[in-house]
C-alpha cells in the first residue's frame, strides 16, 4: 500500500500533489492519500484514492512542519505502507525530510520515476534538472518526493472512503510554526506566471542598461528576469533571478539577452515552451538550448524589436 501526501490551496488539491499521486499509483497496490489541516474534508472528496485520511487539529491552522512529520509517521494505517510519496514543493519536502529522520529512513528527493520492488529503482534530478541520477533505494518504506510538472496529474475522482482523525501532537511538534503571514504585494506580472519573460544577463552591462529589457517586457505584458551574474553585480534584486537557485519559470516564450546559457541558468527555464536568445556570440552555449536566436548587440536588437512592435500597432 502507498500513501500520497496531498497539499491543498483554497480548498483545491495542488497540481503538484496530483502529479505525485500519479507516481504513487504507479507503484502498484492500493493508494491512500493524506490531507492535512482546515478544508481537508472538501479536498478529500476529489481524490481518487482507496482511502483519504484527513488530519484535523486546532493547531494545524498555521503550518508547523514537525507536526506534519508527526502526522505522516503516525497515520492510522502506517504499518502497511511501503511507500510515502509527496510533491516536491518546499512545504512537503520539508515535512518529508523530517518524517524520514523520525522513521530512520532515507529520503529520495525530486524523483521523476520509480519502478516498484526492493530495491526500488528510481530516477531523480540533480543540479536542478540539468542531470539525472538513476538509483536503487534499499528500504521497506520508501520516502519519495516528486518533481513538479514532469508527470501528468491524476484526474479528480471520488475516494473509496474518507477517514477523519485527530492526530496527537506534542508541544515540541509546534515549536516551529508560522507565527505570522505577510500577504503578497499587489499588482505586476509575476515571473513565475508570466507568458513572456525577457531576461538580461551580464551582457546588459549595467543596471541602467536594463531599460531596453524593461521596455520590451512592458510592451509584451511580460516580466523581467536576470541571471546570477546580474544579481551578484547588484544590478537587479535576487527576486528577478532565473535559474537553479532563482525562479523556475514556464512562459510561452523566454527571451534571453546577453546570457551565456550556463546549465544552472537554464535549469530555471526548463518549463519555457520556446527560447529566443539574443547574443553577440554565435558560439555561446545558449545557442544549443535555444529554439531561435538573433546574433547581435542586445542594445541594438531590443530597441529595434520594441520599435517594430509599436510600428505594427500603429
Amino acid at each position: 500500500m502507498n500513501l500520497c501526501l496531498v497539499e491543498h490551496l483554497d480548498g483545491v488539491a495542488t497540481d503538484a500533489s496530483l502529479q505525485a499521486f500519479t507516481l504513487a499509483a504507479g507503484l502498484g497496490g492500493e493508494t491512500h492519500a493524506l490531507v492535512i489541516g482546515p478544508g481537508g474534508a472538501e479536498v478529500a472528496a476529489t481524490i481518487p484514492a482507496a482511502v483519504v485520511y484527513v488530519a484535523e487539529h486546532d493547531a494545524l491552522d498555521a503550518f508547523a512542519p514537525d507536526a506534519w512529520a508527526a502526522i505522516l509517521c503516525a497515520m492510522p494505517s502506517r504499518t502497511g505502507v511501503t511507500a510515502i510519496v509527496a510533491p516536491g514543493s518546499a512545504r512537503a519536502t520539508d515535512a518529508m525530510a523530517r518524517a524520514a529522520v523520525r522513521l530512520g529512513e532515507p529520503l529520495a528527493a525530486n524523483c521523476i520515476s520509480a519502478t516498484p520492488g526492493n530495491p526500488l529503482l528510481l530516477t531523480r534530478i540533480r543540479w536542478g534538472g540539468s542531470l539525472l541520477e538513476e538509483a536503487r533505494l534499499h528500504t521497506d518504506c520508501a520516502l519519495l518526493t516528486v518533481v513538479p510538472h514532469t508527470l501528468p496529474a491524476v484526474a479528480p475522482g471520488s475516494p473509496g472512503a474518507v477517514e477523519r482523525f485527530t492526530p496527537e501532537l506534542a508541544d515540541a511538534d509546534l515549536v516551529v510554526r508560522v507565527r505570522e503571514r505577510v500577504a503578497p504585494p499587489a499588482g505586476g506580472v509575476s515571473l513565475t506566471d508570466a507568458k513572456v519573460v525577457v531576461t538580461g544577463g551580464r551582457g546588459v552591462g549595467s543596471a541602467e542598461g536594463f531599460v531596453v529589457v524593461e521596455e520590451l517586457a512592458g510592451l509584451l505584458g511580460g516580466a523581467v528576469g536576470c541571471s546570477r551574474a546580474v544579481t551578484m553585480s547588484g544590478w537587479r534584486p535576487h527576486t528577478d533571478q532565473v535559474g537553479q537557485t532563482g525562479n523556475k519559470i514556464a512562459p510561452e516564450i523566454y527571451i534571453a539577452c546577453g546570457v551565456s546559457g550556463a546549465t544552472q541558468h537554464i535549469a530555471g527555464a526548463k518549463g519555457a515552451k520556446r527560447i529566443l536568445a539574443v547574443n553577440t556570440d554565435p558560439e555561446a552555449p545558449i545557442m544549443s538550448v535555444a529554439d531561435y536566436a538573433v546574433v547581435g548587440d542586445l542594445h541594438e536588437v531590443l530597441p529595434a524589436i520594441s520599435a517594430e512592435l509599436r510600428r505594427r500597432r500603429g
Binding site: 554565435p282 529554439d291 538573433v294 546574433v295 541594438e300 517594430e308
Partner: peptide
C-alpha cells in the same frame, strides 16, 4: 541548434 532569425537590428 537554434534557428537564426537574423543579425542585429535587421532581425526585428
Amino acid at each position: 541548434q537554434a534557428e537564426i532569425l537574423g543579425h542585429g537590428a535587421d532581425a526585428a
